[in-house]
């Protein structure tokens, strides 16, 4: 973990390989860089052409990341989460979480990601939940303890699906990092990557993972992103047929369990009260959750294993 957090300050521009001393704005960089590279014989005219094209590609930032690349970023972000939190090795519990979660994801505005949505319980009393880009979602035992019924648990999962749908993780990657990565891609996309390009790309990859995990696990997303994720959660719950009051019920319970100064949702999310206030604007005054007996029974059976 530490090793990554100290991570690699990247050469701001991958074009260092073309002998450029310092970074400039991408627009001029692509023009000048291509010229220099061709003139100095570092790049063929054809490569110079694709360096120029890199300039137009980088303007698009995180949207230029394909679902396939998002998938690879998400796998490593997920592995980093599990380096810090132990997974709960219980098949029945994880299966229940996946049936519920994957069903909910079908009702989101982004039901299809490259590798699909997958869920796992983390064996910790911390009140925490993380979603890696592409749909790997981790929920702590402590968080599940904040849920008294399936509708509340559905709300937790739907909030995390919201972060995936809106690509909040990818947006935590710094612009300069994205620029480096996209430049390497644009200049070298024809060939399979050789040693140097692969090393540079891996550096950009590591940096991207650090940007995402430090935002997700330490600093938290912006208030605006959290509000968006709650709003996406309400939409998912309403479409699927769960009671969106589940979100308010869960937050009310969470309020009792969060310890001030804790390294969990107390640190990375707005206070439950302020979230409840915003959600109430979307769903109207809180009403009690009525769970059919069969729904409550299966929830309790699964939660009992967690």
């Amino acid at each position: 973990m530490n090793m990554l957090y100290r991570a690699a300050i990247l050469p701001l521009c991958a074009l260092a390989l073309a002998g450029l001393p310092a970074c400039q704005t991408m627009d001029t960089l692509s023009e000048v860089g291509a010229g220099v590279a061709v003139a100095t014989g570092v790049a063929t005219p054809q490569q110079g052409q694709s360096i120029k094209k890199a300039g137009s590609a980088v303007g698009k930032t995180f949207e230029s990341i394909t679902p396939e690349q998002e998938y690879y970023i998400g796998r490593t972000v997920g592995a980093m989460v599990l380096n810090q939190y132990k997974p709960l090795d219980n098949k029945a519990a994880n299966n229940y979480l996946n049936v519920l979660g994957q069903t909910l994801a079908q009702f989101s505005d982004r039901p299809e990601t490259f590798g699909g949505y997958h869920f796992l319980v983390m064996e910790t009393e911390d009140v925490n939940a993380f979603s890696a880009p592409g749909g790997l979602i981790f929920i702590s035992r402590g968080m599940i303890r904040c849920c008294q019924n399936e509708d509340a648990l559905a709300a937790v999962l739907a909030h995390e699906i919201g972060h995936v749908e809106l690509q909040h993780g990818l947006q935590a990657i710094s612009k300069s990092r994205m620029t480096s990565a996209l430049t390497i891609l644009a200049t070298e996309s024809a060939k399979s990557f050789g040693g140097q390009e692969l090393a540079q790309l891996t550096e950009a990859f590591e940096g991207s993972i650090t940007d995402i995990t430090s935002t997700m696990m330490n600093n938290g997303y912006s208030r605006g992103f959290e509000r968006q994720a709650d709003s996406a959660a309400v939409t998912i719950l309403q479409r699927s047929g769960y009671d969106p009051n589940g979100l308010i019920a869960m937050l009310t319970q969470m309020k009792k369990q969060l310890k001030p100064g804790g390294h969990d949702f107390a640190k990375t999310h707005p206070s439950p009260d302020s979230r409840i206030e915003d959600i109430a604007k979307l769903v109207g005054p809180a009403t009690p959750i009525v769970s059919p007996a069969a729904r409550q029974a299966r929830f309790q059976a699964a939660a009992g294993k967690i």
């Binding site: 052409q49 694709s50 094209k53 890199a54 137009s56 590609a57 698009k60 230029s64 990341i65 394909t66 396939e68 690349q69 690879y72 970023i73 796998r75 490593t76 990565a181 996209l182 891609l185 644009a186 200049t187 996309s189 399979s192 990557f193 692969l198 790309l201 891996t202 990859f205 991207s208």
Partner: peptide, 19 residues
Amino acid sequence: AASGDELALAGKGFNSDVE
């Protein structure tokens, strides 16, 4: 594909080699 507008190359960029 370098312009990113018309084509996308599968398996390029952050891929299994990078992982």
